[in-house]
Computed example of a mutant assay.
Amino acid sequence: MNIQKHIEELLESHGLKKTSARIEMLKIFMDYDYALSAKEVISHMKITHDRVTIYRTLSSFEEHGILHKASEDSHGIRYALCSHECPEETHTDEHVHIICDKCSQTYCLDDVKIPKIQVLEKFLVQKISYTINGICHACLSS
């Protein structure tokens, strides 16, 4: 299946209109195997969109289960594509993220699930995050 058709079907399945900003943004996320910040998305866009459109689109994608917040650092929030099983209501793609200490990129390790942790009865768990720091393959090779 070609990328354009896949993106259009993804937007349609999540009840979102096929705008130029949404289509271009999804193409960008599909081109990278690591999470991107809003600033990085803006720098990769060929069509100029105002910042409000970019941030609203990122927020909308997160609300509709297309993107998830992979990490947050001095560069801002980094977003990554959700797995296909991630519904709109709640993100179910709880997996490990690894952040490269050299290039600061965040990678999703979709096959590595967060281990089950017993939480005291006095706590209501609202979000689980599991992050590993290290050096990515690209930085090790350079």
Results as ranks from 00 to 15, higher is better:
residue 54 I to M: 08
residue 97 H to L: 03
residue 89 E to P: 09
residue 98 I to N: 01
residue 142 S to A: 12
residue 8 E to K: 10
residue 83 S to R: 07
residue 132 I to L: 15
residue 29 F to P: 01
residue 116 K to M: 08
residue 2 N to T: 06
residue 102 K to S: 11
residue 12 E to V: 08
residue 116 K to S: 13
residue 70 A to G: 07
residue 102 K to D: 15
residue 31 D to S: 14
residue 138 A to E: 13
residue 71 S to P: 06
residue 68 H to W: 07
residue 102 K to C: 05
residue 50 D to L: 03
residue 134 G to I: 00
residue 133 N to S: 12
residue 66 I to L: 09
residue 38 A to K: 03
residue 128 I to P: 09
residue 35 A to D: 03
residue 129 S to T: 15
residue 22 R to L: 08
residue 129 S to R: 15
residue 23 I to H: 03
residue 46 K to S: 14
residue 13 S to G: 05
residue 9 E to N: 11
residue 133 N to Y: 09
residue 116 K to A: 13
residue 119 V to D: 00
residue 65 G to M: 12
residue 31 D to K: 10
residue 74 S to I: 13
residue 125 V to K: 11
residue 133 N to G: 09
residue 45 M to I: 04
residue 12 E to T: 13
residue 111 D to Q: 05
residue 113 K to L: 03
residue 134 G to A: 01
residue 59 S to Q: 13
residue 46 K to T: 09
residue 60 S to T: 13
residue 108 C to D: 09
residue 117 I to V: 15
residue 14 H to R: 15
residue 10 L to G: 00
residue 96 V to L: 14
residue 23 I to Y: 01
residue 140 L to N: 10
residue 26 L to D: 04
residue 120 L to S: 10
residue 73 D to V: 00
residue 11 L to Q: 04
residue 6 H to R: 12
residue 42 I to H: 02
residue 103 C to E: 01
residue 85 E to M: 06
residue 69 K to E: 14
residue 11 L to H: 00
residue 134 G to T: 01
